[in-house]
Design a protein around this nucleic acid. Sequence first.
DNA 1: CGCTGTTTTGAGCGTCCTCAAGAGTAGTGG
DNA 2: CCACTACTCTTGAGGACGCTCAAAACAGCG
Lengths: 250, 250
Amino acid sequence: MPPAAQAAALAAVRPEPFKVACSSCNLRELCLPVGMSSEQLERLDELVEQRRAVPRGEALFRAGDGFQSLYAVRTGFFKTCVASEDGREQVTGFQMAGEVLGLDGISSDRHTCDAVALEDSQVCIIPYGQLEHLTRELSDLQHQFHKIMSREIVRDHGVMLLLGNMRAEERLAAFLLNLTQRLQARGFSSSSLVLRMTREEIGSYLGLKLETVSRTFSKFQEDGVLDVKQRQITVLDPQALQRLVSNAAG
Amino acid sequence: MPPAAQAAALAAVRPEPFKVACSSCNLRELCLPVGMSSEQLERLDELVEQRRAVPRGEALFRAGDGFQSLYAVRTGFFKTCVASEDGREQVTGFQMAGEVLGLDGISSDRHTCDAVALEDSQVCIIPYGQLEHLTRELSDLQHQFHKIMSREIVRDHGVMLLLGNMRAEERLAAFLLNLTQRLQARGFSSSSLVLRMTREEIGSYLGLKLETVSRTFSKFQEDGVLDVKQRQITVLDPQALQRLVSNAAG
DNA sequence: CGCTGTTTTGAGCGTCCTCAAGAGTAGTGG
DNA sequence: CCACTACTCTTGAGGACGCTCAAAACAGCG
């Protein structure tokens, strides 16, 4: 391992010195603490003590790694991807601040996908054994945790619908609407966004080749629906995107 | 509502008089009771008291229905499907004995998909509020429940890989291998199976049109991989199916 | 035995993929 | 500061895979 990579690896596992408690985290309305009282939040603070920095391009975990903890994205942006036996890769999701990573690992005590940071990121470490223990005492936490898992299942079903039924333009429109909605929930503009991922990663997520993604972006630009400058996207006509998704057959 | 449908609806909600406890159920190695002691099983028996018969073609629940309970398939076979805003349908899974239905409902207190019986079926009703309560006391039950949710997420990722990356033959091969493996785990032959679903339902699940599914079955028959007599399938060359899935690029 | 729904098979077409080249962008080091 | 390299993105041409439309065979059921 070259010195630079070694330093990066060290940085990746070094816990953050400056603790930000769940109880005072500005993501608590999106993340695990939803619906918990201040006393309950203090208990949660004891659980989520460590943070971890993940530099752009590095993996938070990889398929096959032992499963110990869940992770909540504090800052930054991740992709998760699974690989088939013959090596083809499928991006299964993109995660932003407040979203939880690692739920796949519970089933077999091993992670089954890779989680890779698409920009320099920070995650809160949620030791899973301790979480199970605490959820036995705090029913609000338990219910929120179950909701997060269930929401992941519902989200995956939506992606299956997209992959099974939609055409390229519809897929990209659905993808962009989903991104802008999630950004808006975090206080960002719903019309202007910077893509954190490559055309190839978008294509992998949407079941398309990168050339098709690029062509579809160009078409949206020609049609006046988007302004596309590399990864800087401006949504000019959100209703056109919505029409593509909801009236997809016509 | 015509009398026949009315009678069917009544039958669908009438609890089964003959109780079969989890502790003596032959599916307990596949279902919720995995890993529990006999004392714990007695507690679970108190929870899972009711059964419900679902005739072929009827829905156990539909998207939008209020969420009260999870369901464990006791006998029979189900499909789950979601619909897009414009009415297109995507089959998200097929469930057989020992598998759990309804996990999607936890996220929003409403079901987000339809669960439809593909043959006359029976399910065990697992009241969700009581399950949450009991999992706070029985850590083995809690862990098994979390594993079941996590396994569903992992399964969905596998379907996304299939839908995003595989060609028609590879999809059908993966589907058949998955079915035979699950049947084998339940003590059935791994080479002979009767499909419970139509070509259209298989196609919806695999992101293909029914004609493509039919053609692919015919091709497998020509190639000597399968014997296909309508829904009666015999796997003649399982390794050929495996090669299609794992060496899919070549 | 006719009705209905499912399955098979064919012919032609469209969407997306493959292959390829070139332009744009970012990061590195002289 | 600018060349150099690596990566990403765009665009074109041609082809393949799966879809659409259509008709007929088949099975299940009242």
